[in-house]
Every structure is written in C-alpha cells, then in structure tokens.
C-alpha cells in the first residue's frame, strides 16, 4: 500500500508537469520575449497592439515590463529578444556596447507633472517645467520620485538638472524616492499630497486619482521618445533574430505606426508614432 501511495504520488506529479508543459506548447510555439517599460504595459498599449501583430504574423510577444534600466539589463543578460524602452542615451550606450543590433525610433508620448488639486506650490497651469520644479524645491512641497532607474526616473533627474536644482544638496524630507513603478508612485503621491512626474499614458489609465490632477503639461522638454532594439544575436546566440526583427519592422512600419496612433483612452491619443522622423 505504501509503495502504491508513493507511485501514485509520482504519477500525479508527472501528469501535472506534462499537462503544464502541454498547456504551454499549445499556446503557440512561435514567440519572442520583449523587455519593456511599465509605462507601455500599464497604459494598456500592448494590450491593444500585440493582438494585431499576432493576427498578422502568428508570433506571440511575451512582454516583461520593468523600469528602463532593468529592461536594458534583461536584454544585456540575453533574457529578452527585443528591448522596447524610453531613455535615449541609455539605448545608444546599449547598442554601442554591442548588446543591441540597432536602435530604431518608434513613437513618443509626453510626461506630465501631476500634483494635488490644492496645488501647494502654486505651479498649476504653467507650461514651464523647469520653473515649476524650482518652485517645488524652494517651497519644499512634497515630491515623489520613482527612484527605480526607469526611463521616467532618468527623465525626471535630467529635468532637475535642466532646472539647475542640485538634488544631492537640496534633497530633504520633501523629496521621496520610492523605488517602485509608475502606478505605485501615483498611488503614493495621491496618499501624500505630493507632486510626481508621470507619463501621460499611465496617468490616463490610472484609476485611483483621488485629489490628483495635471499641474504642468505641454513643455517641449517633457517629450518622451521610445526606441526599439533587437538584442544582438552575436552576443546571445539563442536570440530569435527573424521573429524579433519582424516585430521591430512591424512596429516601425505603417501598420504598427497606425495601430499605435489608434490607441486612445477616453478619446485621447497616448502615443505619437514617429518612426520616420529623422533624429528621433
């Protein structure tokens, strides 16, 4: 009876593993792994465009969404076939180091400065982001930073630099680094009546807005360019070169560009395709 019991246990285990494995293969043998940012995922863009791509090519795109820094690291380790992020200088470095084949511009969206409706720093309605940041720092109004090496975090840091605010010196209890994604940063800002820099896509699809609203938008310096890179098969032989390239070609081609433009939340377009724009 004991031997039977043990045997049954083994059979059950084997069956479960087999079923799980079958379930996986049944979901399609053709797939690529794309490492991307939380903003593209949380905004719902992938939910809109990936089914279109799959219908077109039969290729499943499995998206792992992380901060831009992490997403690039995932590509460096060879754990993704395609990297789709938004931090241009880091992308260029990535390709220069030989981890990526080529960077191609895809689209841009813009950042918005979100703040409490009560607007303690008095920056609401401004079109000058550097001015607004300086005011926030001077008034020591609460500010939530992603602090997670993401593209948005990188953009935020460069904006502080443009505004000539030396964070290392002026950091205080007003400046809160949370080390989490965009959604978490918005939740935290809502709870703390703080300002926060967010990408418009995540903001539009964010539901827990509470007392938060847009404080500053429309500044040229808030534009946020996305690029896509095929991980270099010369570095990682297992990279699915053909299927990865197919995804990149589709994204930057007319069909993909149209799909991106078509994605709207509440009638608002989130991402603006610009694959053909030189120097983007």
């Amino acid at each position: 009876m004991n031997a039977q019991f043990t045997r049954r246990l083994f059979i059950a285990a084997a069956l479960t593993v087999c079923t799980a494995a079958q379930a996986q293969t049944a979901q399609g043998t053709r797939f690529i792994v794309a490492s991307s940012t939380t903003s593209t995922q949380d905004s719902g863009l992938f939910g809109h465009i990936l089914p279109l791509f799959k219908a077109n090519t039969g290729i499943d795109v499995r998206v792992v969404s992380q901060g831009t820094g992490q997403a690039l690291d995932t590509g460096r380790r060879g754990d993704a076939d395609v990297v789709f992020v938004h931090a241009r200088s880091q992308e260029v470095t990535f390709v220069a180091q030989g981890f990526g084949v080529e960077r191609k511009p895809v689209m841009y969206n813009d950042f918005v400065l979100i703040g409490p409706k009560s607007d303690p720093a008095g920056v609401k309605g401004s079109k000058d982001i550097t001015n607004a940041l300086q005011t926030i720092q001077q008034k020591q109004s609460a500010f939530v930073s992603r602090g997670d090496r993401s593209g948005t975090h990188a953009a935020e840091l460069s904006l502080w630099k443009t505004a000539s605010v030396d964070l290392e010196k002026s950091k205080g209890s007003w400046y809160r680094e949370i080390g989490q994604g965009m959604g978490a940063a918005l939740n935290t800002a809502g709870a703390m009546n703080a300002y926060v820099l967010a990408d418009r896509g995540t903001w539009l699809s964010f539901k827990n807005r509470g007392e938060l609203d847009i404080a500053v938008e429309g500044d040229q310096r808030l534009f946020n360019q996305y690029g896509v890179i095929l991980v270099n098969p010369a570095k990682h032989a297992h990279v699915k070169k053909a299927d990865g390239q197919a995804f990149i070609d589709w994204l930057t081609g007319p069909e993909g560009q149209k799909a991106i433009a078509d994605y709207k939340i509440g009638g608002q377009q989130l991402f603006f395709p610009n694959a053909t724009q030189p120097g983007a």
Binding site: G44, H48, G190, K207, N208, G210, I265
Partner: peptide, 22 residues
C-alpha cells in the same frame, strides 16, 4: 499601510477606458 488606509475614504471616479489588457 497608508495606501490601504486611504482606500476607504477615496471617492473613485466613474471613468471608462478601452484597454485590452484589463
């Protein structure tokens, strides 16, 4: 903790979105 404490007093907006992910 603060996040969840806040939930009970928030008034959620009536907002629609067209995301396919959710």
């Amino acid at each position: 903790m603060r996040l969840y404490a806040k939930i009970t007093i928030l008034n959620f907006d009536h907002r629609k979105h067209t995301s396919d992910v959710v």
